[in-house]
Structures are given as structure tokens and as C-alpha cells.
Amino acid sequence: MASVCVDDDYFDVGPDGRLTMVPGSLGLRERLYFKETGTHEFNRGDYPWLARVFLQVQAAGGGAAGAKARAAEFMSAPGGAGGGYAERLVDASALGGTETIVVGKGGVAGTATVDGGNGGNSSFGGVCTANGGAGGKAVMESGSTLIAYSGTAGPLAGIGDIAQGGGAGGGCFRLTGNQGHAGPGGESRLGHGGFQRASTGEGGAGRGYGGGASGAVARDGDSVSGTAGQDGVVIVWLFG
């Protein structure tokens, strides 16, 4: 009778004589991207071979305020903060049958003289969470004298094997009634903040996922809306 040898790191012979794979020995099988903002579900039963998951959770960035200047005057706004990030490796046995996934939406753009909105939190159940970045405030009034304002503090860390807050939004300043700078948007782990500007216009939008928006600039009677923050994302790596 013929016989074979099997590597018991990868294969197992059950009591009924059937050859099966050892759970967790196959490595990465699939990757899921949740990019649409809102609530989603992860059903463990859809992946009967699942041994563990690696989670990457990126929260959304904050929006930025607009600006409105009187004639011969200048006004600018600070940037919104970047969204926080967390990652975690979790055994499948530690997951519920259904886990809720939340993808945070970028903070809304403020209209002229109105604050930018806060970025939404992102999470995978309660095991991996990240906090959204705060929106930039409309702190500067129209004027022509030298003045400067602090930026927007980044969010605190959430929950994960690695968890960190997002980058702070930059501060804004005015030099004269015609010169100054808006604040840049805060950085995120999976994205970048919007570029700061010195000329009239809305601030730069972030890039990637979770970046904060830059503040707006208005000069000599201009009125400008702000910029929205970047949405978050949740990435699930499935190992069998």
C-alpha cells in the first residue's frame, strides 16, 4: 500500500482519514476595502476558513471654515485636523458572528465666517477604533492689522495594537490688509492635509483618506466658502 508524508505545519489528517488544511496556515486570502461612508456589516460566517483578521481603521479629516473680508481688508482661517488611525491583529475566534464597521465622513465645509465640521469616527466593532479630526474654526475677523491664531488640535488616539491621533491643522495669520496665510490641513496616516494658501479662494482639499482641509482666504470684499475634510476608510485583511 502506498503511503505519503505531509507537512503538519500545513496539513492535518482527521479521524475520518480526510486531509485538511491547518487553520491559519494559508496566509493572506483576501482583502476588503470599505470606502463608502456610513455603516457596514462583516459576517464571520461568510469566511468559514478565517483564522485571523488584520484591521486598518482610518477616521475622517475635519473641514475648514470660509472667509469674508471687507474692502481693503484680509481674513483667513486655520486648517481642519487630520483623522486618527488604528490597526490591530485579531483572532477570528475573538470576533462576533457579525461585526459593525463604520466609515467616517469628512467634516463639512464651512460657509463664509462659519466653522468647518468635524470628521467622523471610523471603527471595526469595538476592537479597533479611530477618532475623526476637528473642524477648523472661523476665528479671524476681517481687518488690516497684524494678527495670528493657533491651529486645530489633532484628535486623541482610539483603540488598537497601534493607535494614534491625526495631525493638527495649521494656524492662520494676517500681515496687512492684503497679505497673510490660511492654515494647512492636518496629516493622516493614510492621507495628507490640504495645502495652505495666501491668495483669495477656498483652502486646499486633502489627499487620500482622512486628511484635513486647509482654511480659506478672502481679501478686499471677497467672500469664500471653506473646504470639506477627506473621508475615512476601513481595510480588513483576511488570513486563513
Rank of each mutant, 00 (worst) to 15 (best):
S123F: 02
N131G: 08
E202N: 12
T111K: 13
N118A: 11
G186P: 06
G194H: 03
V139G: 05
A218G: 12
V127L: 07
L156T: 13
A109M: 14
S188M: 08
G212D: 09
G232R: 04
V233R: 08
S144D: 14
A168L: 09
S214M: 15
G169T: 04
G208T: 12
G185W: 03
V102A: 12
G96Q: 08
G136R: 00
Y209G: 05
G110H: 02
L156F: 10
G96T: 06
G158A: 02
D161T: 10
G194Q: 01
V103E: 09
G151E: 06
A153H: 00
T152M: 04
A216N: 04
S214I: 15
G96I: 06
G160Q: 02
D222R: 09
G183H: 07
G165Y: 01
D222W: 09
A216S: 07
G117I: 01
S122M: 02
R207E: 10
A213E: 12
G171N: 05
G226M: 14
Q179D: 15
G194K: 01
S150A: 14
P184H: 13
T152W: 03
G106Q: 12
Q196T: 12
R189Y: 12
F173A: 11
G167F: 02
I101R: 08
G132K: 01
V103A: 13
A134I: 02
G170N: 01
A138W: 02
Q164F: 08
V224M: 12
G110W: 01
G193R: 03
R197C: 11
T111A: 15
K137F: 00
G107V: 08
G232T: 08
G210C: 07
G136M: 02
G135F: 07
S142A: 11
S188C: 12
A153S: 10
G210I: 03
G204A: 06
G208C: 11
F173E: 10
A112K: 02
R189V: 13
A163K: 04
G143R: 03
S142V: 10
G135R: 03
